[in-house]
């Protein structure tokens, strides 16, 4: 696999909505709508006879358009919190409202719809389907949402072009570099115009150069599309683009800093 020169800061596609500078949550007069609100959020896992606390009694408020970095070591609860926000899991107790949906009371069907329409997820290990091409991987969430094939593939092509992957549309994941795979994953996360993008260690499997490019991309999406982005990472690459940094340790928030 030859390495290609990664794209520099991309120009957003024509459909982007320019937004104002994000503001820290809770600041009076910020005028921002609350996107995510968690109260006493707890997730406990039952493993055989023992219990493992993923997160414990977390209160969280994230406004529309923020780019939040969740920081913490392994086992701090970052992935657990992300899983709950992504609708991949449900809390043991506490309240969680995301984009107006009460996730802990949601049915399985409602969670499925939520995952389709409201969030886009970027995984550490990319999680591209190995038998699908780049274009097909990106189109998949939109097809699952019931959109017409021709419309979806057109939009997917546009997104991929924006991300510098136009020559790779028919390639399988095994034919891509790590950076290309993650950009494909980002395009997939964007295809349904989600309100929120959740990225779990998006640079964990990338070299520093590609990692920086991915972070810049996410920053660009946040700035230009106004998409709320939450990145779980223990890398410093996201510091420069974050509006808020939240520290986690042993399942609890230890600090929350407005960095914008």
């Amino acid at each position: 696999m030859t390495s290609r020169k990664p794209p520099t800061a991309p120009t957003p596609p024509a459909s982007s909505v320019p937004g104002s500078q994000p503001a820290c949550p809770g600041l009076p007069g910020s005028g921002r709508q609350l996107q995510i609100e968690a109260r006493g959020l707890t997730r406990i896992y039952q493993l055989g006879v023992s219990e493992v606390v993923g997160i414990d009694n977390i209160d969280l408020q994230i406004s529309n358009g923020e780019l939040v970095v969740l920081k913490g070591n392994s086992g701090s609860g970052k992935s657990t919190l992300l899983a709950l926000l992504a609708g991949l899991d449900q809390p043991t107790r506490g309240g969680l409202i995301v984009a107006g949906r009460n996730l802990n009371q949601a049915t399985t069907r409602e969670l499925t719809q939520y995952r389709r329409e409201t969030v886009g997820v970027v995984f550490q290990s990319f999680n591209l389907l190995p038998t699908l091409t780049v274009l097909e991987n990106v189109s998949l969430p939109a097809l699952l949402a019931g959109r017409a094939f021709s419309t979806v593939t057109a939009k997917a092509s546009e997104l991929l072009a924006w991300l510098g992957l136009a020559p790779r549309l028919d390639h399988l994941p095994a034919q891509l570099s790590g950076g290309e795979m993650q950009r494909t994953a980002i395009a997939r996360a964007l295809i349904n115009d989600p309100a929120i993008i959740l990225a779990d260690e998006p640079t964990g499997n990338l070299d520093s150069l590609n990692g920086r490019i991915v972070m810049e991309l996410l920053g660009s999406v946040n700035r230009n599309l106004g998409t709320t982005i939450i990145i779980a990472t223990h890398s410093d690459l996201a510091d420069s683009i974050a509006t808020t940094a939240i520290g986690l340790k042993d399942g609890a928030i230890i600090d929350s800093v407005c960095t914008s």
Binding site: L88, T108, V121, N127, P130, L140, P141, L144
Partner: peptide, 16 residues
Amino acid sequence: RKELAILRSLGASSRL
């Protein structure tokens, strides 16, 4: 199994 989890995470219903 992993692919199925990915599908589900992308919005595929269990019925699908």
